[in-house]
Design a protein around this nucleic acid. Structure first.
Lengths: 197, 197
DNA sequence: CCTCAAGCGGACGGGGGTCTCCACTTAGCA
DNA sequence: TGCTAAGTGGAGACCCCCGTCCGCTTGAGG
């Protein structure tokens, strides 16, 4: 690949990440091309479809996401691990307006093996946190999805506001997860497949 | 207005409410017209713009919303009033996929007098609930907006799932609002104007 | 420096959305 | 029953988006 082409490709990716974060995935390809200083055709030669651009732009964040859960599982304090997972992923989500959409869009592509493993890891974390007595017994692993969906509702405001709001929301929820005594409505198995239909 | 015309208009409104609830505001005008059994032109004669159709379709729900807060203020138990407000409005939101979008879209139109009054009513409710010792002192009236935005993140799944999820989310949050002892991140003044920019 | 394949940009096709125009139909009154 | 204004439906103008095609440009090796 020629030097100028490589540079153009990199600039497109950077710009795409910025715009997706600012304005969500609905930003037109033409806007990305314009801001990157290239023609539309150039953009489409490097990324044959909008989806492929989105995937590449968010690949890094997905890896981070994955790592967060694995790190948390290694934390000797399961409650702290759980809090960290929720806090970090929610902040990622709040700071990037396109994150949720990219994640749900990429969900079917993710090899089911990987996602099942991640889910089991999280379930194990929940179990250990309950056993240590720091997490309420009626917490369900599906509540992670509940939190993520709720947190996604904060996107759409400027990033600084969204992150501040996310922090407060998560603080409220975590407090309830720890010390809860009320009777809750039953957990809802919020499979992401539901969002996609 | 001719009898058949009046009936057509009513049918359009009914169908619009159904489709907006099911599929959100992005449902095309053509789909509404088709399902109502009228031509597109008929639809546009009664509602000169899509926005006007949305406003009329949701006017009823806005009134309900208004009433919910006023009722709550008359409740002798301010904590129960607060819970009722949050629960009812969140359920309205979860049951109708277009509700949030319609609300934020109509927000600038709402006479500022009305919305200021409603906001003051809610703030008064919060104050009374704090005075009665049932609501944590660091709760902010802006947290209502926080809850509504979070709850709006649950739209997009089938209605029954969304309502169940909403109930559980609200239960978690209310528990935290009542019994909270943790230090929270500062409240975020989530003006709805932010969502519109 | 010359060559040429790799790279480039913008015009364009196709699809889907909102809203308009206009020739036809029909309710409802005398 | 006949008249007419109110009502109707669908074609199409206009716009925005994704993705393609094609003639021009340019980096870089010999």
């Amino acid at each position: 690949m020629r030097a100028d082409a490589r540079e153009n490709r990199a600039r497109v990716l950077t710009v795409a990440r910025e715009l997706f974060a600012e304005r969500g995935l609905e930003v037109p390809m033409a806007a990305i091309a314009r801001r990157a200083g290239v023609g539309i055709a150039t953009l489409y030669r490097r990324f044959p479809t909008k989806e492929s651009l989105v995937m590449e732009a968010f690949a890094e964040q997905f890896a981070v996401c994955q790592g967060v859960i694995d790190d948390a599982l290694r934390d000797p304090d399961p409650w702290r691990g759980l809090c960290t997972v929720i806090e970090k992923v929610c902040l990622l989500q709040a700071a990037d307006r396109g994150f949720t959409a990219a994640f749900t869009a990429s969900f079917p592509e993710l090899h089911s093996e990987v996602r099942d493993r991640t889910w089991e890891h999280f379930a194990a974390l929940v179990r250990r946190a309950k056993d240590s007595g720091q997490l309420r017994a009626d917490f369900s692993p599906h509540d992670l999805t509940l939190v993520l969906m709720a947190n996604s509702g904060l996107s759409g405001v400027p990033v600084e506001v969204a992150t501040a709001a996310s922090r407060r929301l998560v603080a409220y929820l975590l407090e309830s997860f720890r010390s809860g005594t009320d009777v809750l409505p039953p957990p809802v198995p919020l499979s992401l497949d539901l969002v996609l239909s």
